[in-house]
Each structure stands twice: as C-alpha cells, then as structure tokens.
C-alpha cells in the first residue's frame, strides 16, 4: 500500500468514537481498573485524529511518511490502545492482554512495547519537548508529516511544557499540533483549583501559537479544529484545547465524583458496556 490510510465519514466518526469507548471499556473489564474516565472523555478526539486527520499505515506503524502522534500522557494508554485497535494497528483480540505480564499493552504507554506508540510518556511534561525535536527533525528531512502531541491540562503545570511552547514558536514549527485534553481533573482534584492555567487559549496565543478551544466531545467541532490547524498557512505551531467530560458516554460513571482514577466495581463493567451499547451510533 503506497497511500496513507484515509477514511471517509462512513463508518461515521461518531461510530468510531463509540467503538473506541467500547474497546477501552473491555480493557478496563479485563484488568478491573484503568484510566477509563480519561479514555471515554478523549474518545471523540482520538476518533477525529485517527479516522480523519492522521496519515498512517495500519500495517506499517513505523512508515516514514506517517504523522507522528505522541501520547505525552502515558496513563491514557488505554485510550490510545483502543484507537490503535480500531485503526487496525493492534489486533482486537490483544485487548485481552491489557496490563498483563509480558503484554504489549502496559498500563502506562511506552514506545518500546507497543506498535504505534511513538514515545514513552508518563513522566508528565516531557511530550511537548520531544515533539519540538521531532518537528525540527522532520523539517530537516523536508518531510511534510505533522507531529501531534496529546497532553493533559495537568501537564500545563510542568515548566518544561512552557519551555517547549516557547521553542516551538521560536522555530516556527507549523508542523506541530498540540492537543490539550482539558477535563479539569487531576490526581488531587480539579486542575483549576490547584494550579490554574486559565485563561488558557490567550496564554498559548501569547506564547506565539495559533490557539483554538473547542468542546472536545463535539465531533464536528473537533474535526473543524483539526482541519483549521492543518490548513493554517501561518508559520506558527498550533494548539487545540479540547474541553472534555470525564467518562463521557456512560452517564452513571460521568456522574461519579473524583474520577481521575475511576473506581469501577467488578459488576459495573458489563453494566457500562450495556449503557454504551444502548447508545450505539452507526
């Protein structure tokens, strides 16, 4: 196959997002735990990324011409595995191994373990700096590929994020798109209560970035933002701040408090899958 994988809107992005949520819930059920609220929250963004925006080859994850998608937030691995399964990079049956000994799908994402995982995230605040280096490297190679860095609102507290933000603007990295998942939830509580990064879009803009802020669970809005970020001709890096709802798609989990590391009882996984299936989109 010489062309990158591209998808039309059938099956719809909403259906892709639904299936990504389903893969993630099944992995959570296997392990009995996981950052499932984040996975459900970011599923719409990942659907747009993997089935609308990114160039890649499912059968050749290291294809040189691919767009690089960096998971700075290593604990969102369950979400990215779900997207990679849906994209055909990882076989669906492998989700049964999630978090198990010797699995290619460890609880925190690492590049050496998993096809399609570009970096080892998890030490939060490192992804954007690596993205700057990769974007510089791609420019050296005159590659048209984009670098996407998916990070969380919590990582905005790390100083290294802002070193990298300044640098990306300094080097005019128009091949770098940063996606911030703003679910306003960190380990100890709401992000805005502990180290508030607002006003966020103006902050990125002041750092020299083209900044957009959208409802991250509105697929049409997310798709439009990705399109705008890619189509922009201005010589500057681009950020898409996505306001998402933790556990989106499973209302009884959405309603649960303190859901950074969501506790789901053993019998609730099947219930969550039932709820999700009831709202199936095609």
């Amino acid at each position: 196959m010489t062309q990158p994988t591209r998808f039309s809107n059938a099956p719809s992005l909403a259906a892709r997002a639904w299936r990504i949520r389903r893969h993630a819930l099944r992995m959570g059920e296997v392990q009995g735990q996981g950052y499932i609220a984040q996975a459900l929250g970011i599923a719409d963004v990942l659907a747009v990324a993997y089935f609308h925006a990114l160039a890649y080859r499912a059968e050749d994850p290291a294809w040189e011409g691919r767009d690089r998608f960096l998971l700075s937030i290593g604990h969102y691995a369950i979400a990215l595995y779900a997207a990679l399964i849906e994209a055909g990079v990882i076989p669906e049956e492998e989700l049964e191994t999630y978090g198990a000994d010797d699995s290619r799908l460890p609880m925190s994402g690492m590049a050496t373990y998993t096809p399609g995982m570009e970096i080892s995230g998890g030490s939060l605040g490192q992804g954007l700096g690596m993205a700057v280096g990769m974007a510089l490297g791609l420019k050296r190679k005159t590659s048209p590929a984009f670098v996407y860095n998916l990070m969380s609102d919590g990582e905005l507290g790390e100083g290294a994020t802002w070193e990298a933000a300044m640098s990306a603007a300094h080097w005019k990295l128009d091949n770098l798109i940063c996606v911030v998942d703003f679910n306003n939830q960190q380990a100890d509580g709401p992000s805005t209560d502990m180290l508030c990064s607002e006003p966020l879009a103006p902050k990125w803009a002041a750092f020299g970035w083209h900044a957009q802020r959208v409802d991250g669970n509105d697929i049409d809005a997310v798709r439009a933002a990705f399109d705008a970020a890619r189509a922009l001709t201005a010589p500057q890096p681009r950020v898409i701040i996505c306001d998402t709802r933790m556990a989106k798609g499973v209302p009884f989990l959405e309603a649960r408090d303190r859901n950074h590391f969501l506790r789901v009882e053993a019998d609730e996984w099947a219930k969550a899958l039932d709820v999700l299936d009831a709202g199936r989109v095609s």
């Binding site: 690596m130 990769m134 510089l136």
Partner: peptide, 16 residues
Amino acid sequence: AEQLLMGAAAGMAREG
C-alpha cells in the same frame, strides 16, 4: 532551557 534541550534531542534522535 535544559529540559527542552534533552527532550528535543530525544525527538531529533527519534527522527534519525
């Protein structure tokens, strides 16, 4: 920005 230096060096190395 030494943290950026090392992160960007990692990214450069990833690109060959």
